[in-house]
C-alpha cells in the first residue's frame, strides 16, 4: 500500500516522464528561447547587504564575526529571560515563607529585672501562654535532687533550663491543653485545675493524668538581664 503522498509523487513522476518523452521533438527550440536564464541580470543588493558581506571574497573570513553578532543578540535575550525567570521563581517561593507580621510575633524579648525572685509571670507568645519563673535557690536545689527514675517523663533539671534561676515553659498542660496555675499543687510548681495534674518547679509532670513535662521552647539569653524566646 502506498500512502497519499508517495502516490502523488509517483503519479507526478510518471507525468513528468511522459511529457518529457512527448516534448523531445520541440525541446531544442524551447531551450533556445529560454537560454537557461543566463540572460537575466541578478539584481544588485549591495544597498541591503551588511558591510562585511559586500565583498564576495571576504564573506568566509567574516562568518565568525556575523555569527558572533547573532549569538550575542540571542544571548542578550537569554540574559533578560533568566532575570525575569529568577524574579518569577523568587516571587512564588517567597510567597510560601512566613509573612512579616507572623515573623514579628514569632519572637518575644523579656526584661528579666521586672520579674522578682520566686515569682512566675505569664506572657503571650505565638498565641500560647508562656511561663517565666524566677526560681529561688531553694527551688533549684530541690529540683536537682529529684531522682529521674521516679519521673514519668525522665528529664534532669539541667536539660530543661539554660540558667538555673530561669525556667521558661509553655503554659499548656500536656494532658488536654488547659492553662496550669502557677505556684500551686503538691510540688510547688504548676497545677492544672482541669484534671489535677501537678508539675514541679521545673515544669515536670509529677502527679495526675498528663503524660509529658511542660514544653520548653527554644530560648536564649543574649545578655545579662534579657531573655529572647523564639
Amino acid at each position: 500500500m502506498l500512502n497519499a503522498v508517495s502516490r502523488a509523487y509517483v503519479r507526478g513522476g510518471v507525468q513528468a516522464i511522459s511529457t518529457g518523452l512527448k516534448a523531445t521533438g520541440v525541446a531544442i527550440n524551447s531551450m533556445a528561447n529560454r537560454q537557461g536564464h543566463t540572460d537575466l541580470q541578478v539584481p544588485d543588493f549591495t544597498d541591503y547587504r551588511r558591510d562585511s558581506v559586500k565583498d564576495g571574497r571576504r564573506r568566509n573570513e567574516t562568518a565568525e564575526e556575523r555569527k558572533a553578532f547573532s549569538y550575542l543578540m540571542v544571548g542578550a535575550g537569554a540574559v533578560g529571560s533568566a532575570y525575569a525567570a529568577k524574579g518569577l521563581v523568587n516571587a512564588f517561593v517567597g510567597s510560601m515563607s512566613a509573612s512579616a507580621d507572623v515573623l514579628a510575633m514569632a519572637k518575644i524579648e523579656i526584661k528579666l529585672s521586672d520579674i522578682p525572685e520566686g515569682k512566675s509571670v505569664t506572657f503571650k507568645w505565638r498565641g500560647k501562654p508562656l511561663f517565666i519563673r524566677h526560681r529561688t535557690a531553694g527551688e533549684i536545689d530541690t529540683e536537682r535532687q529529684v531522682p529521674t527514675a521516679s519521673l514519668r517523663d525522665p528529664e534532669t533539671d539541667d536539660q530543661r533550663v539554660i540558667k538555673p534561676e530561669w525556667l521558661v515553659v509553655i503554659g499548656v498542660c500536656t494532658h488536654l491543653g488547659c492553662v496550669p496555675i502557677a505556684n500551686a499543687g503538691d510540688f510547688g510548681g504548676y497545677y492544672c485545675p482541669c484534671h489535677g495534674s501537678h508539675y514541679d518547679a521545673s515544669g515536670r509532670i509529677r502527679k495526675g493524668p498528663a503524660p509529658l513535662n511542660l514544653e520548653v521552647p527554644t530560648h536564649e539569653f543574649p545578655d545579662e538581664g534579657t531573655l529572647v524566646v523564639g
Binding site: 565568525e64 564575526e65 555569527k67 558572533a68 553578532f69 549569538y71 550575542l72 544571548g75
Partner: peptide
C-alpha cells in the same frame, strides 16, 4: 568579535555559562 565567538559562543557549555 572573532575572539568572543570562538571562546564563548562556539560551544553550548561556555555559551550557557556566559
Amino acid at each position: 568579535m572573532k575572539v568572543i565567538y570562538n571562546t564563548l559562543f562556539k560551544r553550548t557549555s561556555t555559551y550557557a555559562v556566559a
